[in-house]
């Protein structure tokens, strides 16, 4: 456990040296701020873009607070995921190529703790960023649009957080098994995209999919209740994380550290 804490702290330190602790939270907060601002300014934006044709009667409905927050979470799910995957694509392979992994792993360190420390370190950063982003989105929505429950905001963000945890486990897995950062990022993004699309298109077949966590968040915010099979999705998500991390460690152990 002490070595695990040591490696975990090393991860946090390395992310601080790479300025990740500054720029990733900044990106999430800006994403969180952007949606309430654009919703608030939408009539003016339409005007500035040329406006509606003369005489057209189109009522732009006033933005609903919970929908604005939902759109923000959607942005986190698209742009946020892109940023997370691209910024951590070389999380294992980069250390392997630079020789740091070799230096760490000649010591009596378990491969599993090496991998899980990496995942936990990245998760810490993602958790802080996502919560900061959601809180600023909540604050701006409250300020510019209307009342919004803070508790619902937090629940919705926690559901997204579990989905992000699955995605990060995928990135760690591919980064540990593939040599390059590019293929790892591409495969993770492709799988996440495929899972999200299939879950959206074949809801009857994909009831188990952890991508449904985002749908639960949407339903919670707009209708105030979760969809069916909530616990199944949580269970599958957690199982996927465990399986991915354990098999990443097992596959990583079987590869020579130096080519």
């Amino acid at each position: 456990m002490r070595t695990w804490m040591l490696m975990y702290r090393k991860e946090l330190l390395e992310m601080a040296r790479n300025y990740k602790w500054i720029w990733i939270p900044c990106v999430f907060v800006l994403l969180g701020v952007m949606q309430p601002l654009t919703s608030h300014l939408m009539p003016q934006i339409i005007d500035a873009a040329g406006g509606l044709p003369e005489g057209a009667v189109i009522e732009i409905p006033p933005p609903v607070p919970s929908v604005v927050l939902l759109e923000t979470l959607n942005n986190f799910g698209l742009i946020g995921v892109l940023v997370i995957v691209l910024s951590s694509m070389s999380i294992v392979s980069g250390e392997r190529n630079s020789g740091v992994a070799g230096m760490v792993l000649v010591r009596p360190v378990r491969f599993l703790s090496y991998i899980t420390a990496k995942w936990a370190g990245a998760m810490t950063l993602v958790t802080c960023s996502l919560l900061l982003g959601s809180l600023s989105a909540w604050y701006y929505t409250e300020l510019l649009i209307g009342d919004l429950s803070l508790l619902d905001t937090l629940y919705g963000s926690l559901l997204y957080l579990l989905w992000f945890a699955v995605i990060l486990a995928l990135v760690v897995f591919f980064s540990a098994t593939l040599k390059g950062a590019g293929p790892a990022a591409f495969l993770s993004l492709a799988l996440v995209l495929a899972l999200s699309l299939l879950t959206g298109m074949l809801p009857a077949w994909m009831t188990w999919s952890p991508a449904r966590l985002t749908a639960h968040a949407a339903s919670l915010l707009t209708e105030g209740q979760l969809l069916d099979l909530f616990w199944l999705n949580i269970l599958v998500g957690v199982t996927m994380i465990v399986v991915l991390l354990v098999s990443a460690a097992a596959l990583f152990r079987n590869r020579p550290l130096v080519d």
Binding site: C26, V27, L30, L37
Partner: peptide, 14 residues
Amino acid sequence: IGAIVPFIVLNVIL
């Protein structure tokens, strides 16, 4: 103005 300042500050920090 309190809503615009953080937006600008964060962009400048980045």
